[in-house]
Amino acid sequence: MTTPLSVRVVEAELRTYRRTWRGSVFTGFLNPILYLLAMGVGLGTLVDENLSVGADGISYLAFIAPGLLVATAMQTGAGEGAWKVMAAVKWRQTWHATLATPVGVGSLALGQIYWSTLRVAMVSASFAVVMVLFGVASPPEALGAMVPAILVGAGMAAVTTAFTVRLQTDAPLAMYFRFVVIPMFLFSGVLFPITQLPAWLQPVAQATPVFHGVELARMIALGITPSVSPWISWFYLAAVLVVGTVLVIAPLRRRLTP
């Protein structure tokens, strides 16, 4: 039995990951604990004393937990597609070496997206465990909420990779994080409902994958009825992933196999 080419890429990444897995598993648990403590418990106590953000009886902690899960997955995915990719195509050119093996550009791109998805899944899983520990979701609910989170993270990995492989320097990456990734975290319904935004900004927020991921995660974990049809959200997230992946291949081919 031969291993599919894209799976070989995932295996190679796993070998690299062996070097750093302890640290990354540690932060995988530490991050959600800190976020949920600071924003869910600390800030949440203030919020809950004054108003109710979600449907009746839902605490701020419970409200933002699925949101933060999706946001964390999104940032992990973006991280996988950024400087690491720049190093592989430009600084260390390790992908040049990969392409001298049976692995071709398509399998390499696909393998990288698989690997990013796996990383996002790991981070989401530790987040889900913490959610259960904080008592905001039952294990099946937390597990279910992981699905849209992973889809958002994978899509962001694909889109970010597609962006990075077109760059000559890494300067635009810092801009990308400052003006796309972080605002997406702050204003796409993770920390507060987008109805709080000025009317003209709401459609912008609705166009982000994070918004759709959060709507789905809240529906699954808390039973909150989403403001758009879940089918639209699922389809949109899948489309982002597919389109992002397709957009990686052509520039990568032009760049690495001229």
Binding site: T16, R19, T101, P102, V103
Partner: peptide, 15 residues
């Protein structure tokens, strides 16, 4: 990566 890991990754690309 180490010498071993470099060779290992490359070898896995060849299955």
């Amino acid at each position: 990566l180490t010498v071993r890991d470099n060779l290992y990754m490359y070898g896995r690309y060849f299955d």
